[in-house]
Amino acid sequence: MYVIMVYDVSVKRVARVLQIGRKYLTWVQNSVMEGALTQTQYQRLKQEVLKVIDKNEDSVLFYTLRSEHDLRKEILGIIKGAPSDIV
């Protein structure tokens, strides 16, 4: 499956959510990550994120598609998350 993760979390937790997300997905935009995952990887990602966020303050959205081929993406401007941007 292809997963897009969008998050809006407290500054206290944003670095940790980013770190967890990068274990599974590719950073493509501020607070946006995407990539192909197995069902097991997707479940692990959600479990790890749930351990970090505060459900009363933070928001994390997951969009799932069958594959990357089901996604049409248009980029205007610079491409973030390109190999030169990866730390």
Rank of each mutant, 00 (worst) to 15 (best):
1 M>S: 01
3 V>C: 04
4 I>Q: 02
4 I>W: 07
6 V>E: 02
7 Y>H: 05
8 D>W: 01
10 S>D: 07
17 V>H: 01
17 V>C: 01
17 V>Y: 00
18 L>H: 14
19 Q>R: 14
20 I>S: 05
21 G>H: 01
21 G>L: 03
23 K>T: 14
23 K>Q: 13
26 T>A: 07
26 T>M: 09
29 Q>C: 07
29 Q>K: 02
30 N>S: 14
31 S>R: 06
32 V>F: 00
34 E>T: 04
35 G>T: 00
35 G>S: 03
36 A>P: 03
38 T>C: 03
39 Q>N: 05
40 T>Y: 08
40 T>D: 13
43 Q>G: 08
44 R>P: 07
45 L>C: 07
45 L>T: 00
45 L>A: 09
46 K>L: 07
47 Q>R: 08
47 Q>T: 11
48 E>G: 02
50 L>S: 02
50 L>G: 06
52 V>A: 06
53 I>T: 02
53 I>L: 04
54 D>E: 10
55 K>W: 02
56 N>E: 08
57 E>Q: 13
58 D>G: 02
59 S>H: 02
59 S>G: 10
59 S>F: 06
59 S>V: 08
60 V>D: 01
62 F>E: 06
63 Y>T: 05
63 Y>E: 13
63 Y>P: 07
64 T>S: 12
65 L>Q: 04
65 L>K: 01
66 R>I: 10
66 R>G: 13
66 R>L: 15
66 R>N: 12
66 R>E: 13
67 S>V: 04
67 S>Q: 10
67 S>F: 00
68 E>P: 08
68 E>M: 14
72 R>M: 05
75 I>E: 15
75 I>C: 14
77 G>R: 11
78 I>N: 13
78 I>S: 15
78 I>L: 11
79 I>R: 01
82 A>Q: 10
82 A>V: 04
83 P>G: 05
85 D>F: 10
85 D>W: 09
87 V>C: 11
87 V>E: 10
